[in-house]
Amino acid sequence: MSQAGPDEVEHLDEALSTLGERDVETWRRENIRRRGHEALGAPRRSKLAHGYRRYFEPALVATVCAIHLVWAFGTTASILLR
């Protein structure tokens, strides 16, 4: 496969630029608009709630999983080495 020369690039970009726009169907378009309006008027989430969801909850889940994994490996190893 060879790299395209400047003329070929121009020709290819011309062909690409002829590709038309696409759009969603009318009912879906209006549905998205309505959801956008709802989100625009929705009360803002507090920083505390954002911090809980973004950082605390994932960290808690990861810690519980890690503790469980360590316990499972430890238990398996103790049974096998008995």
Binding site: V24, R28, N31, I32, R35, G36, H37, E38, A39, L40, A42, R44
Partner: peptide, 16 residues
């Protein structure tokens, strides 16, 4: 279509 919706909902949510 789903991702388009999420894109514009995020725009609205983060507008302020």
């Amino acid at each position: 279509e789903d991702l388009l919706q999420e894109t514009f909902v995020r725009l609205a949510r983060r507008a302020p």
